[in-house]
Each structure stands twice: as structure tokens, then as C-alpha cells.
Simulated scan of single mutants.
Amino acid sequence: MSRVLRKCLAVLVLPVILLLSGCTENEEPEVPEVPRGTEEPTGDAEATEASDATPEPTSTLDVPFECSELMTAGRVVQILQTSLDGETQRVYNEDFLEDSGRTGRLTCRYGAPVSGRTASPSPSPDAEPEKAAVEIAVSSYVDEETATGRIDTTLGSTSRDVEPQTIGGKEGYLLTGDGEITFILADGVRTYVIALRRGVVPEKAEVVVMLDLAAEMLGLDSPTPES
């Protein structure tokens, strides 16, 4: 081999040796991270997501916060088929004695006389508010047994005429007095009370109107009153 050829080979081999030497001395190249959005969730991750999506047990005990979530004044007027004077008043309360079993209560008064006073979140038990055309109250309790017990207590303490009235397969009760007619019902952990001031609608239409209000509140079709 000629001297010129050996010199050319040496020139070619030297960069290769240097390149290999540099690769062995440096660390291996980092593996690029996979974007998080493309990763398949592991079993633990799926369990965590499922846990996060599960509602808290107490979420079933809540009551609506606003009257518009329970029933709008416009819808009440439509069911009554008569205009209402006055205003809509709201009383929301979630502060109760522990042994009462109650966890929340929303009371909405439609067609209430305008008094110039704001409804108190904690009204005095001795206060006797002026009668509204319609009053609807929903309360929540710690369990179904407690809710049903509240209905039983009301029935046992009333002096008004009581008539069982089924709606949507649930047993409710009509309580008739001189000043108003009331419908009460326990549904799960909640109780519902609807009071209609007498004279707002003709007497023969009172039961129909009460059940229509109850059906609207419970998301049911308008029922036919039982004879």
C-alpha cells in the first residue's frame, strides 16, 4: 500500500473513532415523554376518576336554593288560571337542631301580601305571616324514615279534616281547613307541603289545582283526583 493511500485511510478512520468514543462517554439520549392526553389510564387512575365522579352521599339531601328552581311564579299562575296580587317571598334555612333530623328547608310564598319586609332566613317561631295565595315548602332529612315520621307527626297533631290522596304512586294527604287546603307528601328523604288559600280558586277546583301543583313540583303528569 502506497504512503498516500495509507494517509487517506488514516484521515477517514480517525473521525469514526472519535465519534464512537464520544457516544460511549455521553449518557444515553432521553426518551421523549408521551403527552398526558394520549396515555391510557391505569386501573388506579380509572378508580380515582370514578371516585371523583361519584356524588357525595349528602347531595341527595339538598333542597333547591331558589324558588325558581322549585316552581316559578309564572307557572303557579298558569296552574291557578288566575292572576296573583302581591309578591314572591323566599325563606331558606339549613340551620336546625341536630335531633330534628332536618337538613334543609326552602319555603316559597307566591302572591304574598307586600309588607315591605325582607323574609328572614331564621323567622321567629311566634311570627304569624300573612297568608299567601300559595305556599310551597320542601324539606330534606337525614333518611327516609325521618321524613315519613314528620308526615305522621303532622297528621297526628292536626285538627283539620284529612283525606288520603295518591299521586304518582306515592301516598299523600289533603288537609282541609277554613282558611286553606294543604297537601303533604313524603318522597324519599324529602317532604313537600303545598298550601292553597281558600277563595283563590273556586272550591270545586281546589283539589285539582293542588294536585296539579304537586305534579309540577314532582315532575309528574297531571293526575286525576280519586273519588
Rank of each mutant, 00 (worst) to 15 (best):
S2G: 11
S2M: 04
V4A: 14
K7R: 15
L12I: 12
S21C: 11
S21P: 00
E25H: 14
N26P: 00
N26T: 15
E28S: 14
P29F: 09
V31Q: 12
P32W: 12
G37P: 00
E39Q: 15
E40M: 10
A47L: 11
A53L: 07
P55R: 06
T58D: 13
L70Y: 05
Q78A: 15
L80W: 07
L80P: 05
Q81P: 03
S83L: 00
L84K: 07
T88H: 02
T88F: 03
T88Y: 02
V91H: 09
V91Q: 14
N93E: 06
L97Q: 15
S100H: 02
G104N: 05
P123T: 02
S124E: 14
P125W: 05
P125I: 04
A127H: 10
P129M: 11
P129L: 07
P129T: 13
E130R: 14
K131T: 13
V134D: 06
I136R: 02
S139C: 06
S139F: 01
Y141G: 04
T153M: 08
S157P: 04
S157V: 12
R160K: 09
D161K: 13
V162T: 07
E163G: 03
I167Y: 02
G168T: 06
K170F: 03
E171V: 10
L174W: 00
I181K: 13
I184C: 02
A186L: 03
V189Q: 07
V193A: 12
I194S: 02
A195P: 00
R198L: 08
V200W: 01
E206T: 09
V207S: 06
V208N: 13
V208L: 09
V209K: 12
A214D: 06
A215L: 00
A215T: 07
L220K: 06
T224D: 14
P225T: 11
